[in-house]
């Protein structure tokens, strides 16, 4: 009886700390935002900077939200960047052929599903480690993107495509930001309110136990990868629309930013732990940081150094805290 009570109390404590972590992240975010607005005045806190920044953040955010689900289930998908590049090229190429916009969107999203299915097959059916598998497919998607576009950028102008990235709803709210909010709501509800989300957490925490208690682990993982591919190609559509051009370099190096923001948000690399809201905070913090560095006129290559360092630092702090928690037990 005592054991059960103590177990429940630690569980409650854990719930509280997890909640606190997210809150801390949001406080850090607010402080950073205020600081950057002050240092980077008058450029940082202006409509001309913030709206594009939010637009640019939107596709990173929606991919990160869904990738969080994949990572909580204990897998990872590095191929999202390549997926975005391929989708951008495919979209632009189909538009150039004169296909109607809505059809192009459907084809692009189906392409994303196919890519997700391929990743899912590799991981669940063949049994490849998802890190290795998706590093391989990352190169394949990007290579196909280069092949399709012959290495060039293709203009992508079409009313439907334009609307995805640059449209406004009620003439004020940019459409990508609506998409961002919708995706975060959707993933939040899935992860926190649905049976599906509970299953994902269970699989991440202990796949064998989940399998023994009757969860179809492979199916859950497969559908996660499908969802991830779908979202990445939606991100590709947004990026194509924002830049009005489809080029194979789209989304290059994005996996670095996305994975670091997810881990910054408190998701465990091994799965089983993580919060969608934490990911939102992580995405916002890193996007604001990189935007600020750009505004301060820092070379892209040096920003790359910062990105790599941030990834290592974030994961290090996470691992060190884990080790400390283990010692406490």
């Amino acid at each position: 009886m005592d054991e059960i009570e103590s177990a429940t109390s630690t569980a409650v404590k854990k719930q509280k700390t997890r909640f606190n972590n997210t809150v801390i992240l949001f406080i850090i975010l607010a402080v950073m935002f205020a600081l950057f607005s002050y240092i980077g005045r008058p450029f940082f806190f202006s409509r001309l900077n913030l709206i594009p920044m939010l637009n640019n953040l939107s596709f990173i955010g929606i991919v990160a939200a869904v990738l969080t689900m994949v990572m909580i289930s204990g897998e990872i998908d590095f191929s999202v960047g390549g997926n975005i590049g391929l989708t951008a090229c495919l979209t632009a190429l189909l538009l150039e052929r004169g296909l109607p916009g809505w059809l192009v969107v459907i084809i692009a999203l189906c392409g994303g599903l196919l890519m997700g299915a391929f990743n899912g097959m590799l991981v669940t059916v063949v049994g490849v480690n998802s890190i290795m598998a998706t590093i391989g497919t990352m190169f394949i998607w990007r290579g196909i993107g280069y092949t399709l576009s012959n290495g060039e950028s293709i203009l992508a102008m079409n009313p439907v495509i334009d609307f995805i990235g640059r449209g406004f709803i009620f003439r004020v709210i940019p459409f990508p930001i609506i998409l961002l909010v919708v995706f975060f709501l959707l993933t939040y509800v899935i992860m926190n309110q649905s049976k599906w989300g509970r299953r994902i957490y269970a699989i991440g925490a202990n796949p064998i136990a989940s399998f023994l208690s009757g969860i179809n682990v492979k199916r859950v993982k497969f559908i996660n990868f499908l969802f991830c591919g779908f979202t990445a190609s939606l991100g590709g559509l947004i990026l194509t629309s924002l830049s009005a051009v489809g080029m194979p370099q789209h989304g290059q190096g994005l996996e670095l930013v996305i994975v670091s923001s997810i881990i910054l948000g408190g998701t465990a690399l091994g799965g089983g732990k993580g919060q969608i809201l934490g990911t939102l905070a992580g995405v916002l913090i890193l996007s604001i940081l990189y935007n600020f560095l750009t505004i301060m006129n820092i070379y892209y290559f040096y920003i790359q150094i910062v990105q790599g360092t941030v990834l290592i630092l974030v994961v290090s702090t996470y691992e060190i805290r884990q080790a400390m928690a283990r010692r406490r037990i």
Binding site: G127, G136, T137, F139, G143, I144, Y146, K218
Partner: peptide, 29 residues
């Protein structure tokens, strides 16, 4: 650019074979 695809595909193929070869028993999860 097709060489790039071939190289990526080769990596995926090779690691798939590696995974299949080293699979100890039927993976259920």
């Amino acid at each position: 650019y097709i060489r790039m695809v071939v190289k990526g595909a080769l990596l995926v193929l090779v690691i798939s074979i590696d995974a299949l070869r080293n699979r100890k028993n039927l993976q259920l999860y």
